[in-house]
């Protein structure tokens, strides 16, 4: 966050808050690596199934955090209400999943 937003009425393009592509390219590479690990773990096979499942879930959660945090800017300042909206959505979604699994499997 810059302290001065003096872009009113000025033709000069102030770029102090412009972020470069580097951060997003790093987030992209990170997502690719997480995806590759997940696919490789399944393609390789032979590994303990429950270990693979845990690995897959961890990779997915990490990737979702990267995408929500960096690409959708949830980790930036002033995003408390959006985080609340999303957290509540994920909470209800998670409850639905756990409930359905509970009904069927136990």
């Amino acid at each position: 966050m810059s302290e001065h937003n003096t872009n009113q009425g000025s033709a000069v393009r102030h770029r102090h808050r412009t972020e470069g592509p580097q951060k997003h390219v790093i987030a992209f590479i990170f997502s690719i690596v997480l995806t590759l690990i997940a696919f490789a773990a399944v393609a390789a096979g032979g590994v303990n199934a429950s270990f693979t499942i845990i690995l897959l879930v961890v990779m997915a959660v990490l990737q979702v955090l990267v995408q929500l945090g960096y690409w959708m800017h949830l980790k930036d300042k002033g995003h408390m209400i959006p985080i609340l909206f999303m957290a509540f959505g994920f909470f209800v979604a998670g409850t639905a999943v756990i409930t359905a699994l509970y009904w069927v499997w136990w």
Binding site: G89, F90, A96, A100, L101
Partner: peptide, 20 residues
């Protein structure tokens, strides 16, 4: 963002059905 929170619920229920 509120809409996306709602979309999360929608997909959550579809995932729940699928997993079951």
């Amino acid at each position: 963002w509120l809409f996306l929170g709602g979309e999360s619920v929608l997909f959550g229920t579809l995932f729940a059905t699928f997993l079951a």
